[in-house]
């Protein structure tokens, strides 16, 4: 990002394989939307407006994973038009829940699912944006936290780098004064290895975290897996916890693989 941001940067939002939930988080910023549209020229945001302006764009938010050859080509074109490219959400940052197909043969499941598999033109894998082009920043979550999107955009106006939430979900959980579901109720929770950012939403509702923000930095899945075993989960069950929404992240993917291998 340039040190001095333009007075009214051009904002674009693009979508790949995804559910639209992350770009909807932008629209969910209801109270800030008008101010946002004042500070940014919304040049391309199909979920919000059919008005489409040509690039280049100063700030580009990209939702979704790359699953087709056409998309792989399209993201390269977007990168060329983008000053600062931000991948938003678990699909764009880790391949999304659709990464699950990476562990199976694509032709097999096409035949299982579709009456006309020959019509389905997809790549073997679902991969994050950063596997294809340079990504300047990633906002994690499924969906992303709308306040974090706003913080990132606001800071970009000041020429400031993002300052994402730090630590594990546990840190947010304790700041909220929540009672740990693992310690007090024996529920296996992914919080200790999951990146902060949701405000410990699930534990605050009395259930376990399922890691939709992906692994925290230096997460140690093996140590948590040992604890899950003590709580009665089989290696297979534990592997499934790691193969969730952000299971495409190498840290969780490798942890799941190791558990499956150990399970024979």
């Amino acid at each position: 990002m340039s040190a001095v941001a333009p007075a009214r940067p051009r904002l674009a939002v693009f979508k790949f394989a995804s559910c639209d939930g992350c770009q909807l988080q932008l629209l969910n910023l209801e109270e800030e939307l008008l101010a946002l549209a004042e500070r940014f020229e919304v040049a391309h945001f199909l979920e919000a407006s059919s008005r489409v302006l040509e690039g280049p764009y100063d700030v580009v938010l990209v939702e979704g994973s790359i699953t087709t050859a056409h998309d792989a080509e399209r993201i390269r074109g977007i990168r060329e038009q983008a000053g600062w490219l931000v991948a938003i959400g678990a699909c764009a940052t880790a391949g999304g829940i659709q990464h699950l197909r990476n562990t199976a043969a694509v032709e097999d499941w096409k035949r299982e699912v579709y009456p006309h598999p020959e019509w389905i033109e997809v790549l073997e894998t679902s991969t994050p944006i950063s596997d294809h082009v340079r990504v300047d920043h990633e906002i994690h979550g499924c969906p992303v936290d709308k306040h974090e999107v706003l913080r990132v955009l606001t800071r970009s106006l000041l020429g400031a780098l993002p300052d994402p939430p730090r630590g594990s979900v546990c840190v947010e959980c304790k700041r909220r004064g929540q009672v740990c579901v693992t310690v007090a109720r024996g529920i296996p929770c992914m919080g200790p290895v999951t990146r902060a950012g949701c405000g410990a939403l699930c534990p605050s509702l009395g259930r376990d975290c399922y890691a939709c923000f992906g692994p925290s930095r230096d997460a140690d899945p093996a140590a948590l897996a040992n604890r899950f075993r003590e709580l009665g989960l089989s290696p297979h069950d534990i592997a499934r916890r790691f193969r969730g929404i952000t299971g495409g992240d190498p840290v969780f993917r490798d942890a799941a693989q190791a558990l499956e291998d150990s399970d024979g």
Binding site: R39, L153, T154, R166, G167, S168, C170, V171, A223
Partner: peptide, 30 residues
């Protein structure tokens, strides 16, 4: 180090731990 998750729970519940982080939260209007 092999057993520790690095999750920070011990420091959050510790009644004397005082480490904190300061961050600036600018408004959209600058």
């Amino acid at each position: 180090g092999e057993r520790c998750l690095g999750c920070g729970n011990c420091t959050m519940v510790c009644p004397t731990c005082f480490c904190h982080d300061q961050r600036d939260e600018p408004e959209l209007d600058g």
